[in-house]
Amino acid sequence: MTASLHHQISGGQKQLHHRLSELLQAEGLSRVRFSFAFARWDGLGLISHHLEDFLGRGGQFESVYGAGNGVTSPDALLYGLILEARYPGRTYAGFIENEYANALFHPKVCMFRFPDCEVALVGSANLTGGGLARNGETMIELVVPRGSQLAADFAKLWSWVQTTAVKVTAEEVERLARSEGSGRERESELPKSHKPYLKVPAKVAPKPLFVKVLGLSGASGWIKGQLLGAMGSITELPKHLYLQIFERETGGQKGKPGSAIQLPTATLGAYFGLSSGESRTMTFKFLDETITANVIHNSNSTHQVRLDPIFSVTRPAIIHFERTDKDVFKTRFIPPNMYEATLTSKCTQQTRKGSRRWGMYV
């Protein structure tokens, strides 16, 4: 066995995510296991590119994170579902929820399996932006021969972790997101302070999780739609939604177009922030009229919201929603002469061939 020390200094040039990325790219790697007390997308996102490349090469990734601790975010857990959908049969995502006010699930261990050894990193760093890029942290790297007693001990540790864990599902993430102990992206991992924020020579946070899903290469529009539809609990919702309106929307009578605009399932979760089965009253502020409507996320189906100003618009058209507050949207129709250009530049997503096109943006 050999051991080496990795020391991350706040504001230093070397961050721990660099070493994790190196190991994920190493030749012969077949399996990775993460067991961390705290996990956030702002940490996972720093290594997500190399992690997905590893899975694309046929690797196996298993993860268990602490939950209900005030730090682990819904986004980190939802990323496990994204990986499961993209690489079926190659991933496991679980969580261990804290049962007591004075006792936490608190490990920081990651294990990398190679043909002749296991490489384990054990130390202080969590799978967060702070743990992998900003904080002062120390990790010991152990290179352990396969078949050794220490390798067996690590295997026994993982067996306990996975046996204790609950499998991540969209329903469990929604429950945890609404619990007292849910963490949120872009909130400090430390108690609130008036001290300044450290600037580090690394990307502090990746793009929001919904952007990650929209950019999935090789994923069908239907898969993206299902993933986004399950993201009612994500921390950072898009600010803008562009939605195509067909020449004849539903809801009219005697063959005439109605005012019921169809909201795709993906937008109900990731844009309007609704969990499956949830409904909320939302406000749509047009230039000359404000409309209040109940928006419902019916699982696996679109929702119709009646917006009468559509009667004054030439169809097909594009409606633009801009979030100005929680459940409040500045709403307008794109001018007819800008329809084709906006359809091409902004409405880049489509659940299936022939369905309306849409796009969500920061």
Results as ranks from 00 to 15, higher is better:
residue 67 A to W: 05
residue 252 G to Q: 05
residue 262 Q to I: 09
residue 279 S to Y: 08
residue 217 S to H: 12
residue 60 Q to G: 03
residue 292 T to R: 13
residue 348 T to Y: 03
residue 172 E to T: 13
residue 12 G to W: 03
residue 273 G to H: 02
residue 185 E to W: 05
residue 137 E to F: 02
residue 246 F to V: 08
residue 185 E to H: 07
residue 76 A to R: 01
residue 94 G to C: 10
residue 310 I to T: 07
residue 255 G to D: 10
residue 61 F to A: 12
residue 140 I to Q: 06
residue 289 E to W: 01
residue 183 G to P: 07
residue 96 I to L: 07
residue 9 I to H: 15
residue 170 A to F: 13
residue 142 L to K: 00
residue 312 S to G: 01
residue 109 V to W: 09
residue 186 R to E: 06
residue 186 R to Y: 03
residue 52 E to C: 13
residue 11 G to D: 09
residue 229 G to N: 04
residue 52 E to I: 08
residue 286 F to Y: 05
residue 177 A to H: 08
residue 146 R to S: 15
residue 89 G to C: 10
residue 328 V to H: 00
residue 348 T to D: 01
residue 88 P to L: 04
residue 78 L to C: 05
residue 79 Y to H: 11
residue 161 V to T: 03
residue 48 S to I: 12
residue 144 V to K: 01
residue 123 G to H: 10
residue 236 E to G: 00
residue 167 K to S: 12
residue 290 T to Y: 06
residue 103 A to W: 08
residue 116 D to F: 09
residue 302 T to V: 12
residue 213 V to M: 09
residue 69 N to W: 02
residue 51 L to R: 02
residue 353 K to S: 15
residue 22 E to W: 05
residue 71 V to R: 04
residue 44 L to K: 00
residue 297 H to F: 01
residue 229 G to R: 04
residue 136 G to V: 13
residue 123 G to Y: 08
residue 110 C to L: 09
residue 165 A to N: 12
residue 161 V to P: 02
residue 330 K to S: 09
residue 58 G to S: 00
residue 21 S to T: 15
residue 135 N to Y: 13
residue 127 L to Y: 11
residue 218 G to Q: 05
residue 53 D to I: 08
residue 50 H to D: 13
residue 280 R to M: 08
residue 358 W to K: 04
residue 329 F to K: 00
residue 153 D to V: 06
residue 219 A to D: 00
residue 214 L to C: 15
residue 264 P to A: 15
residue 122 V to E: 01
residue 106 H to I: 05
residue 204 V to T: 07
residue 95 F to T: 01
residue 4 S to K: 14
residue 358 W to R: 03
residue 267 T to R: 03
residue 300 N to S: 00
residue 185 E to I: 08
residue 255 G to A: 10
residue 90 R to F: 06
residue 104 L to G: 01
residue 98 N to L: 11
residue 238 P to T: 04
residue 113 R to K: 11
residue 48 S to F: 14
residue 264 P to S: 15
residue 209 L to I: 14
residue 154 F to R: 07
residue 18 H to N: 13
residue 49 H to N: 11
residue 149 Q to D: 11
residue 116 D to C: 08
residue 62 E to V: 03
residue 2 T to K: 10
residue 18 H to M: 14
residue 38 F to R: 02
residue 335 P to Y: 04
residue 65 Y to R: 02
residue 283 T to D: 01
residue 301 S to Y: 11
